[in-house]
Amino acid sequence: IRCIGVSNRDFVEGMSGGTWVDVVLEHGGCVTVMAQDKPTVDIELVTTTVSNMAEVRSYCYEASISDMASDSRCPTQGEAYLDKQSDTQYVCKRTLVDRGWGNGCGLFGKGSLVTCAKFTCSKKMTGKSIQPENLEYRIMLSVHGSQHSGMIVNDTGYETDENRAKVEVTPNSPRAEATLGGFGSLGLDCEPRTGLDFSDLYYLTMNNKHWLVHKEWFHDIPLPWHAGADTGTPHWNNKEALVEFKDAHAKRQTVVVLGSQEGAVHTALAGALEAEMDGAKGKLFSGHLKCRLKMDKLRLKGVSYSLCTAAFTFTKVPAETLHGTVTVEVQYAGTDGPCKIPVQMAVDMQTLTPVGRLITANPVITESTENSKMMLELDPPFGDSYIVIGVGDKKITHHWHRSGSTIGKAFEATVRGAKRMAVLGDTAWDFGSVGGVFNSLGKGIHQIFGAAFKSLFGGMSWFSQILIGTLLVWLGLNTKNGSISLTCLALGGVMIFLSTAVSA
């Protein structure tokens, strides 16, 4: 259960009878995928790494000078000259100064003066180019299975845990398959586009800190620079940016070097996208990844198990997540596992009318040892309800109150669905055939309105939902006002479609 501690969480529900669903994975976010007769899966884009970055340009932001020398000439005696002028490691300046009897010249006039100092770069920052084909995306998957609280967001041991898996995709191999043991396998067909235009970005490294910066900004930095990788004795261009020549006297000129420019660069980098280094690879934390999940090989585990009949206890007080759902960790005293956990939410304890829904599909106890633990997640209705676990006299209950409203949740879900469709863009549509167009249209309606429909009408039977949709269509056909007619027709059509397409 990876997503319960992530604030940016998206719930995606598969269409009834569908074998695939489109998701948008982004750094700092987590996606929970639910479908009829399929286990619930949490998917998170953990890291995006980039390798084989080529150094484009380096800037010196802290330097020192040494070996200063000057040469001067009297008027009419030609130009002052130093051998160091031809050495690229030196920074030199030529000027004219007033000369006369007082400073060793027989004539009054302008004399030539040249001053040089050896330039040494102490600290530099480097910009590297990123090729999209060198990106690698690491995705962690977790099935809502027989897990306890100690396994949440624990990325170790996934090789031997059938509840978890790690997959890596690249532009050259965008397809992967996550093996989930008894739950089958989940196929991923990803489109490795981060949403960032790397043709316009460089990877900047300064003092063990890293950013993504725009090329134009990078090339306009007014500091000494050299092109390409460091060859040991780089040729620094624009050395004068960190060196200041003071007022010249008759035979000498003082040279000083400016202080470190790291603070000024940090100020200019305010708002830039931060990154990290992992050995020789860069780690990015921006952008998104679009994936199509193929769920035809994914299956529920323990459908044929019998119900657990022994007593359950709450190991922890049920807690609310950031998303309005409830996490419950229970301990089973029996030894008759594997068995299914009898769990439901009810409005009252007399009729036990089921409300809400299970995020953890078909929760089971897989071990036959005593005191096995299991964590599950529920989506309670707004208002008061009861969490009921167990059967008969051994069942345990917990009162729950959820604040908020169904309308607010439906609106929030619609906005999130619209954002998801905007990110998917043209990849969500198939114009290759008439059937493809209608299929894409259905998927689009489901992406945007599916979660809201589930919130508003999830407790009704599909037949009642179709009746309401048919009534809206009838009202649309018999209303003389054009805008009201079109609105009723659209709402009725969407409702009829979703009542037959969205899983219960």
Rank of each mutant, 00 (worst) to 15 (best):
A275C: 00
A501G: 01
S173G: 04
Q131H: 05
T156G: 01
M53D: 05
G282S: 00
N237G: 00
G492S: 01
G383I: 07
G29Y: 12
G228N: 13
G18N: 01
V114Q: 04
A241M: 10
E216D: 14
M277D: 12
L475V: 11
R193V: 01
S16E: 01
M349S: 14
A413R: 01
V23H: 04
L352K: 11
L135Y: 04
D71A: 13
K340N: 06
V326I: 14
N238C: 11
T325C: 10
T327A: 10
R357T: 01
E177Y: 08
H323K: 05
L269R: 13
A264V: 13
K454I: 13
D155M: 09
T40V: 04
M34H: 12
N237M: 13
V415H: 10
K454G: 04
G408S: 03
S455E: 13
A451K: 12
E55F: 00
S112C: 14
E62L: 01
H214A: 08
R416V: 02
D278C: 01
N362F: 06
Q261N: 10
D10K: 03
Q77S: 08
A80H: 08
I396S: 13
N172D: 11
G302L: 06
L180E: 07
R292F: 01
M277S: 12
T351S: 08
M345N: 02
W101K: 04
D42A: 01
G469K: 07
P342V: 07
Y81W: 04
R402F: 11
G287C: 14
L298A: 02
I396M: 14
I466R: 00
L467S: 02
H323M: 12
S129P: 00
T325H: 07
G442N: 11
I468S: 14
K251F: 05
A270R: 11
L242F: 08
R357Y: 09
L96P: 02
C291N: 07
N207T: 14
F183N: 10
K166W: 14
S464A: 08
K480W: 11
E159H: 08
K239C: 06
T315L: 11
L300S: 11
H144M: 10
L96V: 14
S403F: 15
I65K: 07
L258P: 10
R252F: 05
S372E: 04
Q77D: 06
E320V: 14
T179N: 14
N238E: 06
E55T: 15
P39F: 09
F497E: 12
T126P: 00
W236S: 05
V265L: 13
L378G: 05
T49Q: 00
G482K: 12
A361P: 09
N8K: 09
D336G: 12
A310Y: 14
S433K: 03
E244T: 13
M34V: 09
G404W: 06
R252E: 05
T40I: 10
I387G: 02
D83W: 02
W211I: 08
I65D: 03
L298W: 06
P354C: 00
C190A: 04
K297Q: 09
L352Q: 12
T360Q: 07
G29A: 13
D10N: 07
E162W: 08
A54L: 01
T115W: 11
G145Y: 06
A272F: 11
S146K: 03
V328I: 15
K239R: 15
K290T: 12
T487L: 06
V91G: 01
K373S: 00
I4D: 10
K283V: 04
L376W: 10
W225A: 07
R292G: 00
P380H: 04
L188M: 14
T231A: 10
S499D: 11
I448D: 12
G195N: 07
K395F: 07
L378Y: 06
H401M: 12
H401E: 14
T470N: 05
V97T: 14
L201F: 14
T254V: 13
L196H: 05
A35H: 02
N208I: 00
G324K: 09
Y137I: 04
S455I: 11
M15A: 01
Y61L: 14
A319F: 02
F449T: 10
A268P: 11
Q147H: 00
L25I: 11
T414K: 03
Q350Y: 14
